[in-house]
């Protein structure tokens, strides 16, 4: 029965991703993407990685996607924007990207032919993850915090003028 769950979650993830990437309306696409992320979290959970599942929902779907939502709302793309998007999604534009993506998929599948192993069936608890984080991976943690700081400063600067302008106009 657990396999069925996995297949259902996988199907939802794929479907939602496909829909997300082919919408003309950005907000709709975003919601579909969040659905996809949730489905992937379910897959994590089924593989015995509850910490990863939680993180996926909290951070990925909860913070990053929300950031997207804010920006999309701020940009306020109107009707003509939607019409443009639909036009850009015409059949002719699919040929080259479709072919390349299909080729890559083919190769990945070919590479996966000889991977018969299954998961271990043992869940990895958050405690183990924490121990590993502050054990062997402590340097990675520090560096990732530096990265976040850099991202913070960059985002602040990149967004600043725009906000200042907006306030000036008032």
């Amino acid at each position: 029965m657990m396999e069925v769950l996995f297949y259902i979650a996988a199907c939802i993830a794929l479907l939602a991703t496909g829909l997300a990437l082919t919408r003309a309306n950005a907000s709709h696409a975003l919601i579909y993407l969040i659905v996809s992320l949730l489905a992937v979290a379910v897959v994590f959970f089924l593989m015995g990685a509850p910490f990863a599942a939680a993180l996926e929902i909290v951070i990925y779907a909860g913070a990053i996607m929300v950031l997207f939502v804010f920006v999309i709302m701020m940009l306020n793309v109107g009707e003509e924007g939607l019409a443009r998007e639909r036009e850009w999604l015409q059949g002719r534009n699919w040929i080259v990207p479709g072919t390349m993506a299909a080729l890559l998929l083919l190769e990945l599948m070919l590479a996966l032919r000889h991977a018969p192993a299954t998961t271990s069936g043992v869940a990895v608890s958050p405690k183990e993850v924490g121990l590993a984080l502050f054990g062997p991976y402590v340097l990675a943690v520090e560096i990732s915090s530096m990265l976040l700081l850099a991202g913070l400063v960059g985002a602040y600067h990149l967004g600043r003028r725009f906000i200042v302008r907006r306030e000036k106009r008032r």
């Binding site: 990207p97 390349m100 080729l103 890559l104 190769e107 590479a111």
Partner: peptide, 19 residues
């Protein structure tokens, strides 16, 4: 992006051939 994917496809093909 497209050219990068193209190169990626080639690379993986070569790797598969060698493997």
């Amino acid at each position: 992006a497209t050219t990068m994917v193209f190169g990626l496809v080639l690379l993986i093909a070569i790797m598969l051939r060698n493997a």
